[in-house]
């Protein structure tokens, strides 16, 4: 297990999520795929946070101040915010899907074409 391997996993999951988000007709599946992409990004961020030396520490490795330690956790902080946004996104996304379903009796993205020219 090393950084490259974790990033490889993250990239593959992201690519799968992207492929699914672009190709599935069911809006709920699309949302699930987007969640997959979020998760892939989270994995990447946490992995980078764990393995890569932050600039604040790398700049002067001989005498690292204690305050520089917090930059080791930047990726994790990012992840927390991404999770927050993902939660908000899924709530709204599902609400929209339900609203469309109520109106059109369909959850297919391809059927919601009111905004075309």
């Amino acid at each position: 297990m090393n950084l490259e391997n974790v990033l490889l996993v993250g990239a593959i999951v992201f690519a799968i999520g992207l492929y699914g988000a672009l190709t599935k007709r069911n809006a709920i599946t699309v949302l699930m795929c987007i969640e997959l992409m979020f998760t892939a990004v989270n994995i990447t961020a946490v992995a980078l946070s764990r393995y890569v030396i932050p600039a604040a520490i790398a700049v002067n490795p001989g005498a690292v101040p204690e305050t520089a330690m917090q930059s080791l956790l930047t990726g994790q902080i990012f992840t927390i915010f991404i999770i927050t946004i993902a939660a908000a996104e899924i709530a709204l996304g599902l609400a929209i899907v339900m609203a469309i379903f109520r109106n059109k009796e369909s959850v297919f993205v391809t059927d919601a074409t009111e905004m075309k020219r």
């Binding site: 988000a21 391809t110 075309k116 020219r117």
Partner: peptide, 14 residues
């Protein structure tokens, strides 16, 4: 160009 705006969300995403 407006033909590209076909209402297909995933087309835009693509």
């Amino acid at each position: 160009v407006s033909h590209l705006q076909n209402g297909q969300l995933q087309g835009y995403g693509l």
